[in-house]
């Protein structure tokens, strides 16, 4: 079972306590934007094999959203961080890079 530590309340929560929210750091487009931007925002996904940044909600806990970095090939969790950001924290990226030297790095 996946265990993620919620950065909002500090609890190490099991997967059944959490709601998965999909890919993180997606640029949002609203009414009036170009069709392909809107399509990219709503439907296009990296669906990465390997390092994946994603949104989670501590739904059966404090109720707040946060972000996690996880490997979709091994389920290894690299870390969790606040949702109030546009990109993953530098030290987390460094940590992942060390573990996965072949990783291309964070791309939007």
């Amino acid at each position: 079972m996946l265990l993620l530590t919620c950065p909002n309340c500090g609890i190490a929560a099991e997967e059944t306590e959490l709601g998965a929210g999909g890919e993180a750091h997606i640029t949002r487009y609203g009414a009036g934007s170009a069709d392909d931007d809107f399509e990219t925002y709503l439907f296009m996904r990296k669906n990465a094999r390997g390092v994946h940044f994603e949104r989670w909600r501590h739904s059966n806990g404090c109720g707040k959203w946060f972000h996690a970095a996880r490997c979709t090939m091994t389920l290894e969790v690299f870390g969790t961080y606040s949702a109030q950001t546009f990109e993953p924290p530098k030290d987390l990226i460094k940590k992942i890079k060390k573990k996965r030297p072949d990783w291309e790095g964070f791309v939007k």
């Binding site: 996946l2 997967e15 998965a20 999909g22 994946h52 996880r70 979709t72 389920l75």
Partner: peptide
């Protein structure tokens, strides 16, 4: 199905 992206060919026990 699991709710999160996964390539491991196994699923969650719950």
């Amino acid at each position: 199905t699991d709710a999160y992206n996964n390539y491991t060919q196994r699923g969650s026990f719950h």
